[in-house]
Simulated scan of single mutants.
Amino acid sequence: MTDNSTRLDHVVLWVSDPAASAAFYQETLGLAPVRLTEFIAGEAPFPSVRVNDETILDLMPMTMAERMKMLPGAAESAGHPVNHVCLSLPEADFHGLRTHLEEQDVPVSDYSYDSFGARGKARRSFYFRDPDGNVFEARHYD
Rank of each mutant, 00 (worst) to 15 (best):
M62L: 15
A92S: 13
S16G: 08
V85L: 08
H140L: 10
R7A: 09
P107D: 12
D3F: 13
F39T: 09
A74V: 00
P72E: 11
S5H: 13
M70P: 03
V135T: 11
L89F: 07
L101T: 02
L87M: 13
F128E: 14
S88N: 14
D142Q: 09
A138W: 06
T55S: 11
Y113R: 10
V85A: 04
S77M: 09
T28Y: 12
V12C: 05
G79E: 03
C86M: 13
P90F: 01
F24C: 06
P18E: 07
S115C: 01
I56H: 12
P72H: 05
R124N: 03
L31F: 11
N4M: 08
F136Q: 08
M60G: 05
P47F: 05
L89C: 04
S77C: 04
M1K: 02
G96P: 06
T63H: 10
Y127A: 05
R124S: 08
P81N: 13
D58V: 04
H95T: 00
F116K: 14
S125A: 12
F39Q: 11
K69A: 02
Q104K: 11
N52P: 11
D58T: 10
A75R: 11
N52D: 15
E43I: 00
L71F: 14
A74D: 02
P131M: 11
P107V: 12
V135A: 08
V49R: 01
H10Q: 13
E43P: 00
V49L: 01
L59C: 05
M1V: 06
M68N: 12
R139K: 14
Y25I: 05
V82Q: 13
V82M: 12
V108W: 00
L36P: 06
E91C: 07
N83M: 11
V15K: 10
M62T: 14
F94T: 08
T2G: 12
V49M: 00
E27H: 15
D53H: 06
E137A: 09
R50G: 02
E103L: 07
R124H: 05
R50M: 04
N83V: 11
S21I: 03
P107E: 14
A78R: 01
F136E: 03
P131G: 13
S48F: 07
Q26V: 04
L59T: 08
G133Y: 02
E102H: 10
E103F: 02
L87P: 01
K69R: 06
V49G: 01
E43L: 04
E27Q: 15
P131Q: 07
F39G: 10
P81H: 12
L29P: 03
D114S: 11
L36H: 04
S16Q: 12
A118R: 07
L87R: 04
T28H: 08
S88I: 01
D93T: 12
T37I: 01
D53Q: 12
A122I: 06
S125R: 00
Y141M: 00
G133H: 07
R67P: 00
A19H: 09
F46C: 03
G79W: 09
D110C: 10
P47W: 02
V49F: 03
N83L: 15
V11R: 09
D105V: 03
R7H: 09
A23I: 05
I40P: 03
